[in-house]
Design a protein around this nucleic acid. Sequence first.
DNA 1: GTGCTGACTGCAG
DNA 2: ACTGCAGCCAGCA
Length: 118
Amino acid sequence: MNLALCQNKLESTFFNDVYEVVKLIPKGRVTSYGAIARYLGATKSARLVGYAMNAAHSLPNVPAQRVVNRNGLLTGKHHFATELRMQELLEKDGVKVKDDKVIDFAKRFWDPLIELTF
DNA sequence: GTGCTGACTGCAG
DNA sequence: ACTGCAGCCAGCA
């Protein structure tokens, strides 16, 4: 499946959709770039999700800290104000982090493909 | 207009 | 088990 199809070629809804999904992430839960990408029908575009997160900094209500890589690793922490900022926000949500990794990632994992299944 | 890079992921060697 | 490469889109030089 091509990402262009999702974008409808008229507007780049990719970033927009990413933000939508990220906003829907429940407190105390986390998800991965790949999960979001797959939900949007662009499994191979996980990188773009991360890139979208970069741009998400300028937007409110976009908990980028709840989005980590598939290993539960806070690979994007470096893009926050401080490296500890991401972890602090997560722990504030009730997500414990150790060594830049989400504890019980499997349990905390929130997959839009499943949670948003109709 | 062309080309490289990036908060990733999965497959191949 | 570890390393390397390709694929995707948007932004910048």
